[in-house]
Amino acid sequence: MCKIGIPRGMFFYDYFPLWKEFFQELGIEIIVSSKTNKEILNLGISSCVDEACLPVKIFHGHVEYLKDKVDYIFIPRIMSIDRMEYCCPKVLGLPDMIRYSIGKLPPIIDTQINLRKSNNKYKKSIYDTGKLLGKDFWEIKKAYKKAEKSYERYIYLLNKGVVPIEAIKIYDKVFKDINYSSEHNELTIMVVGHSYSIYDEYLNMNLISKLMSNNIKVITPEMINKEKINRYSNKLPKRMFWTHGKRIVGSAFSLIEEQKIDGIIYLSSFGCGMDSVLVDLVERKAIKAEIPFTLLTLDEQTGEAGVNTRIEAFIDMMKWRNRDENNISAFR
């Protein structure tokens, strides 16, 4: 049986349930690289071009990790996933970047997804991918139907308030209708940023788990439904043409305007071009609404002191504010 490697990086947390089900349904074994660790980080940094952002470097590390273990590596060329929108240039060129940076690679399956003009080409991309693996039309169609179902379950969980790092573990298990929003938490914080930074727990030093262990409810952009994201991002004077940018701005704007959060932590990778615009848009909106905002810029540092100080001070500040509103002495 042939083995396909899926690197645990970049769009992994957006689409893994879809990819996994599709390939498995076609009778192909899936190998996912292990969670990011020091070894993967080091491999990535030594093979990737220096100017790239940390998530791209880490992705290189995941490919290095997989390359001797599999027959194919799946790195789709995701150019556009919505009409008149684009992804980050580094995502567009990812398969090429990998091909020229890493030697002795197994063949890369670089299915092109380009829905900028229409959805028509999407089906063709799916069939081409299946055909490459020697499957016939009906097999592919059936596999994709199943994959869609499992992806829908994942999205359903996210919209129900399950954080993606949890949802990705449980989406394919039998589950009752969990209602996460009923849990009582003292504070609600939005963790915003690109999915490949906020869900990679090594890169961000367990930011989401740290907040959750402080009895804080965490909301991320992926947990806001698409309709709302479109509605709120349309409030910008100019249309946001980056899909992830639109998701970040739309979800943050909706939570700010609906007053559903006590604070926003923006997690950005050093050198991210998109973030140079997005951070400012979100920050200005938050300041106007008097919602605490803080920016964490991460690169390959692994000393946690700096990040911990900022998180701790941020939580302190929100608690201090809340206590003050409840007329309890602010000092203690």
Partner: peptide, 13 residues
């Protein structure tokens, strides 16, 4: 403001 911390920032990188 009014004796409580409302905002702070630290140097980034």
């Amino acid at each position: 403001r009014d004796g409580i911390v409302v905002d702070f920032a630290m140097n980034t990188v």
